[in-house]
Design a protein around this nucleic acid. Structure first.
Lengths: 349, 349
DNA sequence: CTGAAAGCGCTTACAG
DNA sequence: CTGAAAGCGCTTACAG
């Protein structure tokens, strides 16, 4: 389909001016007479002139490109962050160069070389949560680097991550609001700072209300549905003195939900459940079954891109926390009247 | 911490040759005496010479970059495809330029301009399943375009997507293998080709075994957990003459699972359940609870990249189907002895 | 086997 | 307000 592309000098020639002047006009700047300007703009429009970005990058030494690093193992939580960042970058005419790497030093070294060779103007490193700090690559690049969905090992770096304490605050406040006072917490590994932050927020809000955690305290495990199943079984074997379970994520909440219902526990009447992550919505199949805290991952990505492009030297190093939001569902609010109309199809085949 | 970068002419000077010769050597080609070659390579290594990619792209007119388009709304299923493509591209020294767009014509027009301005050498369009055909942008680009996780509206385009019939085959065969004969199928909308393909595969394999679907046939609905809950409730209200449920995805399977267990149905003893997508593994929290068919999304992305780079004119237009794989879990195999050791921690706080 | 030279299409001081 | 010229760092026929 491509005719040979129109160049700046084509435009200049046809407009009867020099390339310098044409360049100046098309980049919006400089003192140029209105008539000349208009003539050039008209010709450019008529020829559908598209500047050769490769030539421009070369001439300016800037690629108008941001490198985005993501972990090779596909954690779906990185996706919204990635798209949030891409969207914010796109708005500023920046392109997104994606690299997926294993976060070991050797692979990182390779990718840093590639980023340098391509002269990226900045880098966003997307992590995989707070279980491990992210290797800092800032010292091996001369352009700004921001870390997202994870925290850099170096305190001199800027990291953006969901506000885990706020997750705990929102969940606790919601459960208090619906009158629950005997709350237990089932979550992931005690070594994962995401779990720890949520516990902290939970305790802060409960503490203010003069309420303590019910039962044996926090049940740490892993992040799987299977752990939710097992944790709920244990709770059922105990004194059953609880009216709400705050789960560290939606997978655990699903496991808990399955197990409690199987035991005849009514949800939310007997026990309310809150999860975290809003997974059903991430899967594009929102069902409102489980009340959850949405960690707003797109905003994390957008914020990271914003810090990168905004005023890199102005943004304070350290960890920036993005606010999250509670998404009410049936596991705390019950079924709303009128919901779940039976509009499905039955079909013989 | 960047010193001024080393240029090709620095290398040439220090090696006592011309830039032409240095260029030839460093690009691996040409007739050059072994001594000269070695001298240049040594100097390049010593100076840690990294060619300026921007200059090279400009000189050659090729950007060594592939544009990857993905839908703006973050469907997590696109993530593994994206990473698979990026990984295959990276292996060939190609970079991945990511654009997320709404798939409407106007937004597509904009992004096509950007892709052209940046002189991408090819494009992968990542779709969002088979519910709608993808707009074809091939005619507005002079470089090859491949469609993944979706099918282009144009039969002249090459599309790569998971093999939906094989999903049905595998699920059916697995259920037959474990002795089930009264199988029902609960799936998504009848308008979604992914659902339709799976139904077709299911019927083919059951047909060969002389088994028909149990009950009222295929239950079409949506892809949500909520639909799984409602479908299972209806089945429980019926004659209960079924010993297996093949669910169109894992969300539906989870809803079905919750509901059956709540009703005291034993899984898999009374009813076996199979889902699709291997979501728990995509979430990096595999739990083995539900037998599922993994659609191998990373392979879809890799295949798309492969067609793009391989021999674009050799690859036949049309739809290419990537094979998928069954991942057995407790919902058909029961708990394996020794599994689910109770290694979690209890912690007071 | 090696090198001088032109060229890729743009930007950017600088001079007029 | 406008233009001539140099330069960005590499590749690529071409001549020797």
């Amino acid at each position: 389909m491509s005719e040979k592309p129109v160049s700046l000098s084509d435009v200049a020639t046809l407009a009867g001016v020099s390339v310098s002047t044409a360049s100046k006009v098309l980049n919006g700047g400089g003192r140029v007479s209105p008539e000349t300007r208009k003539r050039i703009e008209d010709v450019a429009a008529r020829l559908d002139f598209r500047p050769n970005a490769l030539a421009r990058f070369f001439a300016t030494g800037k690629s108008q490109t941001i490198g985005v690093l993501t972990s090779e193992a596909p954690s779906m939580f990185a996706m919204p962050v990635l798209l949030g960042a891409q969207s914010a970058l796109g708005r500023r005419e920046m392109a997104t160069l994606l690299y997926s790497v294993q976060y070991d030093l050797r692979a990182l070294g390779d990718v840093v070389r590639k980023l340098r060779a391509r002269q990226v103007d900045g880098v966003v490193v997307i992590g995989d949560g707070l279980e491990r700090p992210l290797h800092s690559i800032s010292h091996s690049l001369s352009v700004p680097v921001v870390y997202a969905l994870g925290v850099s090992e170096s305190p001199d770096d800027l990291s953006v991550t969901p506000d885990g304490r706020m997750v705990g605050h929102l969940a606790a406040q919601h459960l208090l609001d619906i009158g629950r006072r005997r709350i237990v917490h089932v979550t992931g590994p005690t070594t994962d700072l995401a779990a720890v932050d949520r516990v902290r927020g939970l305790n802060e809000t409960l503490g203010k209300a003069g309420v303590g955690l019910a039962g044996a305290g926090v049940m740490y495990g892993d992040w799987s549905r299977g752990w939710g199943v097992r944790a709920a079984s244990r709770l059922l074997e105990g004194d059953r003195d609880f009216d709400a379970i705050f789960c560290g994520n939606d997978q655990i909440a699903t496991g808990v939900h399955m197990t409690l219902r199987m035991a005849g526990v009514r949800i939310p009447d007997d026990v309310a459940i809150v999860g975290v992550d809003n997974v059903s919505s991430l899967l594009r199949q929102p069902d409102g079954l489980i009340t959850t805290v949405d960690t707003n991952l797109a905003a994390v990505g957008e914020a990271a891109a914003g810090y990168l492009l905004g005023a890199p030297e102005a943004a304070q190093p350290g960890v920036h926390y993005e606010p999250c939001a509670l998404v009410p569902g049936e596991s705390t609010m019950g079924t709303r009247p009128g919901a779940a109309a039976d509009e499905e199809l039955y079909l013989e085949i």
